[in-house]
Design a protein around this nucleic acid. Structure first.
Lengths: 140, 140
DNA sequence: TATTGTTATACTCTATAACTATA
DNA sequence: TATAGTTATAGAGTATAACAATA
């Protein structure tokens, strides 16, 4: 199997874990992804748009719906009156941590099917791939 | 960075490649995923449902829309009159191959940022992860 | 002028529940 | 009865284009 096909299948696996983990917690996968991005702190719409690979208008709707569920809120950006920052509510943080830990736990468990040395090699290789792609980091 | 977070970020990378590759070819990422699954031959609805992690009714709609674009078609299953098989049309095969090759090419290119030995180790580790997850194969 | 974000609109994706037809 | 697939419905996700407010 080509490496590309392996990566695509791995992606499907992770996506399915996200779908299941989100559903167990009563949110959509997109909302879960948003919540997880906000765990490390508030983020601007434009930056979220880049991280999630979404048009600004799509993000507006996603944030609206997630805010309606009481999980995130918009706060004014003191340095730019056009902008706002999105942050987790108290409830949103609970859900974000729970969803993240469940999904990460499941993935860590899968990784334990590899010997320790192979596992750390895998992490290093994936990290290098991400760097090569100049993929935006969650926290910057 | 934990291995789980690395895998999630890798997933985002692949998803973004899929989004871009699909768009360049005038289809949605979901339709692209469907087309790629059909490259190796016709597949039943129930099996597609499992591979794509979708409810049967969701799949019906996806197949409907993809068929309306002339990319797939339903054919009767000779062994079970309740069932149908989905297959690529001639045009669908062209699009499927093009989308697959573009995305796979981009991912292979990224993989070339790793030394050859590390690359093959990555493929082996990912394969083992997929086996550990008992993840459904594309072709069976 | 450029940037940040929203609104309006249309289409796509998805799940739930109820259904038909066949096994 | 169980399985394969569809229909009806409602909500969520997404992009495009046009817009308002601020930089």
């Amino acid at each position: 199997m080509k490496i590309a096909d392996a990566l695509v299948r791995l992606t499907h696996l992770v996506q399915h874990e996200f779908a299941d983990g989100s559903r167990r917690n009563g949110i959509t996968p997109q909302q879960a992804q948003l919540l997880c991005l906000l765990i490390d702190g508030r983020v601007r719409m434009t930056q979220l748009s880049r991280l999630l690979h979404l048009e600004k208008s799509s993000l507006t709707g996603l944030v609206d719906r997630t805010a309606q569920r009481g999980l995130v809120e918009r706060v004014a950006d003191s340095s730019d009156r056009r902008a706002c920052q999105i942050r987790l509510t108290r409830q949103g943080r609970q859900v974000a941590n729970k969803v993240h830990d469940e999904i990460a736990g499941r993935l860590e468990q899968l990784a334990r099917s590899l010997p320790l040395s192979e596992r750390s090699q895998l992490g290093a290789s994936v990290g290098q791939l991400l760097d090569a792609a100049a993929f935006p980091k969650t926290v910057e």
